[in-house]
């Protein structure tokens, strides 16, 4: 089986180009916005995102805060539920920008197909079907019947959230699919097995589960995961890790730029190398998205074996090989 390197990540930091920053004057507080799905089918992503961001913010604040030249700022995370819809995202962004006056927002990205399809083609695969569904769909039989008619050897369910993804694998198994199973945003083997059952979940390859306690985990990942486990009773996963990293990246860029000016911070980010939980990270993705704003860092690919998550490999993006 060819492994597909997920050279881009589903998370990005959007910089908001506000000209003024009245909140900061004298208060030395750096409000950091976060909008993510915190209700509905993708709620677990948003809630985990919040937990990860808060953990890093707490660490930074406990260590003194973010140094901006001679000033020191404490980070305050302001989170909103975007309901996993475009309108919810707009409302959350408007609140953050106009009411909370934040300059930086952590959010969750999408549009993975822009990268997935060309990557599959470049590896010599023929893409026989590309289908989309409405969020909230539960019966995938009609859609999967159509895909199965093309007799695919491999199926990647890409950005399907946990519950819907579980149903897709379950129904694909019922329809007789026994090929290679990929799930770009798959992040929780235990939850998958619960919804899809053990047989249907077997050999599902996921790239967001991470391995923050396992054999491929870095020392930094293990340390952060230990703290996270003490706080929330479960290990870190890719979502919490990505949010943790996002706040950390911002701290590093602001410290290096010696400024809170969004343009200066952005320009610094595009050129610098970051420390991340998984190791070195850089910004990339220009070829796919037309802008160099995707964080690239190593990921651990896992597969479900005998109903349990098993690490398969640790892969580095080409940009930091």
């Amino acid at each position: 089986m060819k492994r597909r390197v997920t050279v881009f990540l589903g998370f990005f930091m959007t910089m908001v180009f506000a000209l003024s920053s009245p909140v900061f004057a004298g208060e030395k507080v750096l409000p950091l916005g976060l909008h993510a799905p915190m209700s509905g089918p993708a709620a677990s992503w948003g809630l985990n995102l919040m937990r990860g961001a808060e953990l890093r913010a707490e660490e930074i604040n406990n260590a003194g805060g973010v140094k901006v030249g001679a000033d020191i700022y404490k980070i305050k995370i302001i989170g909103y539920d975007n309901n996993y819809t475009a309108s919810g995202g707009t409302t959350a962004a408007n609140k953050l920008v106009y009411e909370d006056k934040v300059k930086y927002i952590v959010s969750i990205g999408k549009d993975e197909m822009k990268q997935t399809k060309p990557t599959a083609k470049s590896l010599g695969y023929e893409v026989v079907a590309e289908e989309y569904y409405n969020r909230g769909t539960t019966d995938f039989f009609p859609l999967l019947t159509k895909i199965m008619a093309e007799k695919p050897d491999m199926i990647d369910i890409d950005a399907a959230p946990m519950g819907e993804g579980g149903l897709i694998w379950k129904q694909l198994y019922e329809l007789g699919f026994r090929g290679v199973k990929l799930w770009l945003t798959g992040s929780n083997a235990a939850a998958l097995v619960k919804i899809a059952g053990k047989e249907a979940s077997e050999e599902v390859v996921m790239s967001l589960e991470g391995d923050y306690d396992g054999v491929y985990a870095t020392a930094t990942q293990k340390k952060a995961s230990k703290k996270f486990r003490e706080k929330h009773g479960e290990p870190m996963n890719f979502i919490t890790g990505a949010a943790y990293d996002a706040v950390w990246f911002l701290e590093q860029a602001i410290t290096k730029a010696k400024s809170l000016d969004t343009t200066k911070v952005r320009n610094t980010m595009e050129k610098m190398k970051f420390k991340s939980l998984a190791g070195e990270a850089v910004m990339g993705g220009e070829k796919t998205y037309g802008i160099k704003h995707q964080f690239l860092y190593p990921v651990v690919i896992t597969a479900v074996k005998d109903g349990k998550s098993t690490p398969v490999a640790r892969l580095k993006p080409l940009e930091i090989q």
Binding site: Y132, Y133, P142, K146
Partner: peptide, 12 residues
């Protein structure tokens, strides 16, 4: 209609 619609068109 929905089942055949998905086959000949798409889910949305």
């Amino acid at each position: 209609v929905e089942s055949f619609g998905t086959l000949f068109l798409s889910v949305p």
